[in-house]
Design a protein around this nucleic acid. Structure first.
Lengths: 333, 333
DNA sequence: CGTGTGTGTGTAATCGTTTTCACGGGGTGC
DNA sequence: GCACCCCGTGAAAACGATTACACACACACG
């Protein structure tokens, strides 16, 4: 591939001039055309590795995502990618696969590659490595999941309003024994959703006893199915279940079908994260929709602020309730 | 961040020695420990940008994917990422979003970044830029979709056996008027699936007239829904529909529900690509499963062969039929 | 005892850019 | 007509690594 020296020779100028023309630095009037012609003829493209070495800017952002096959994170990644691209950055995606050690490994590689900034949707306790990121001075923004003890802005959705609305929704429909399926205790996201849901229900005089709180080891369908099984085997089974992650809801739905129970007649079902698929299930599932694309955009914006040395504060965007038919209300799907 | 010179000074050796120790080049016996100690103390990590410039190897692979929100491609990306990582490469993902010009744009950026090799699951007619990739000498492997006129190995699934089996399956279940929903004519994948399905049906004496071939403009649910609508409005509607992409199947399913038709009683439904979700629909959908993870692995393997100068030939892995209940056979879901 | 071989190390060139610094020339202000 | 300034340009120094080459030393062999 042609390099800048080839272009310079062909245009009869020095490499410095070529560089300046290409970066629009000094508005060179007449040589400019010669240089551009040479560039065109040779099909020259600047080597961004060399440029990165010199300028200490790679033009790439890193995104660590906890599970690439989870539609919520996929949409998030898609949004981030879009936003980054439109600002001239490309995106290196690292898939942590919910395994902290793999996450650490990936973060290290990204630091070695001198990405300009890092977005992390953390898989649990990767805080040791995250501390190193902060120490290294690489701009960092947390996404969807906050990490205690890490001093970086966090962009995520606030479920309070939606969960409050949901509690009212369920109460109005006569559901009195709600249950919730959450991530294992200690996961900030899970704990928070549980707490918010519980207090929201309390406002309507509805209790959420521990027997109707199921913590799954993983965020997969099987976990959701197990929890649902446990609920149905209770002496007094719940009449509504909130699954706090979309994959778990699928498993829960399976168990209901396997027992021949109908949604919403025998059981109301609500899912956290409104991935497009849930509009196509039977019945369409009532969901708590996080503003996924906005989250992605806001995160990139915050990260860019940090990169450019401006201050960036945390962002909390409201999630909202999307009522469909899975709780009993006759709403259009 | 500390650089190699800092390490050299601290260890009282030259930068060359440090480099050699770190790359295991000459087995330096005694100074080795001093160097490693210095590395540890300073928390030194080699700058891969500088290394890439000097060695002309970045240790990164590029993956262009046509739609990051399509579960089939997501799983593919996940598999590729896994394979790449386990071989010490990291992955830069470019999401073409089914738009050729965005795809070209991304390919160019990846070339500028001097990735060591490129995997492309092409969104249609990006062949101009692909030709440039070939010309640039960057190792290229096509994934899932072949591109006419591009001389590069292609890794994809062969649907022949599965579609043959499907034809037999449908025939045995008494379905006589099959239909198919495909990508627009001219898309290699769509054309091929159509042709294979048609000949497979012919072997059972079942015709596939053009009126029961629906080509959608996009691969989205809405397209699938429109096609299904068209089929149902025929004087003689089909009694079985094969959707050749997973998202289109969702839309088709919606239309059936909207009309109160039941699967499989009123209509058999089969979907191409067995994304996990289809095991959880009601009823579970019979699917043609592509060996997604194997495809990803094989593609990375082929790409590495090219990178290392070994020859790599195209790979064709068999897809297989996963019968579930959506065609009427009483099979466990 | 001198020469050859091998091992371990340092010096310096190199990768392809950007950018600082210096320089030459043409214009303007006095 | 002289001093000054500004603008466009080129030469050369970075950036941080790898690696070709040379050198110094120790040892063995003739």
């Amino acid at each position: 591939m042609a390099n800048i020296k080839d272009v310079a020779e062909r245009a009869g100028v020095s490499v410095a001039t070529v560089s300046r023309v290409l970066n629009g630095h000094s508005p060179v009037a007449e040589t400019r055309d010669r240089v551009l012609a040479a560039v065109r003829e040779l099909g020259y493209r600047p080597n961004s590795v060399a440029r990165a070495l010199r300028t200490a800017r790679t033009g790439a952002l890193g995104l660590i995502i906890s599970d690439l096959t989870n539609p919520f994170f996929t949409e998030l990644a898609d949004a981030v990618e879009d936003a980054a691209r439109s600002l001239g950055y490309s995106l290196v995606i690292g898939n942590a696969g919910e395994r902290p050690e793999q996450q650490d490994d990936y973060i290290r590689t990204l630091l070695d590659r001198r990405i300009d900034g890092l977005l992390v949707s953390s898989a649990g306790s990767g805080s040791a490595m995250l501390r190193e990121v902060v120490a290294s001075g690489t701009p960092l923004v947390l996404l969807d999941r906050s990490v205690p003890g890490i001093d970086a802005p966090c962009v995520r959705a606030d479920g309070r309003a939606a969960l409050t609305e949901l509690a009212g929704h369920l109460a109005a429909l006569g559901r009195r024994r709600p249950a919730i399926i959450v991530a294992p205790a200690g996961t900030p996201t899970g704990d928070e959703r549980l707490a918010l849901f519980r207090t929201a229900l309390a406002d309507h005089g509805i209790p959420l006893p521990d027997e109707r709180v199921g913590a799954t080891p993983d965020l997969q369908p099987t976990g959701g199915r197990q929890m649902m099984r446990g609920f149905l085997d209770l002496p007094e089974p719940p009449d509504a279940v909130l699954a706090t992650d979309n994959l778990m809801a699928l498993g829960a739905l399976d168990e209901l079908r396997a027992r021949g129970l109908r949604v919403p007649d025998d059981m109301a079902l609500v899912v956290y994260d409104d991935v497009p698929w849930f509009a196509h299930t039977d019945p369409p599932l009532t969901a708590i929709a996080q503003p996924t694309r906005e989250l992605g955009r806001a995160a990139v914006r915050a990260l860019l602020a940090r990169i450019e040395g401006r201050p960036a504060e945390s962002v909390l965007l409201p999630a909202r309730l999307v009522p469909r038919r899975s709780c009993g209300e006759p709403t259009a799907g």
